[in-house]
Amino acid sequence: MNSTVLKFALPALAAFAISTSSAAAVEQSCRFIQAKAEREACYKRQEDELAAKRKPVAPANDGQALDTLRQMRQDDDAVYRSINNICRGC
Rank of each mutant, 00 (worst) to 15 (best):
M1N: 03
T4G: 09
V5C: 08
V5W: 04
L6F: 05
L6P: 00
F8W: 00
L10R: 05
A12W: 03
A12N: 00
A15M: 10
A15Y: 03
F16H: 09
A17S: 12
I18E: 03
T20R: 10
A23K: 11
A23C: 05
A23N: 09
A25Q: 08
A25C: 02
A25W: 08
Q28H: 00
Q28C: 00
C30N: 03
C30T: 05
F32T: 14
F32S: 14
A35Y: 00
A41Y: 03
C42A: 02
C42P: 01
Y43H: 11
K44G: 03
K44M: 08
R45P: 00
R45A: 15
D48K: 05
D48S: 08
E49D: 13
E49N: 06
A51K: 12
A51F: 06
K53T: 02
K55D: 09
A58T: 12
A58M: 11
P59G: 10
N61H: 12
D62W: 10
A65C: 03
L66H: 06
T68N: 11
L69C: 09
R70C: 12
Q71L: 12
Q71C: 10
M72F: 15
R73K: 15
R73C: 14
R73G: 14
D76S: 14
D76Y: 09
D77P: 02
V79I: 15
R81S: 12
R81I: 06
S82P: 01
S82E: 07
I83A: 14
I83F: 10
C90F: 01
C90V: 00
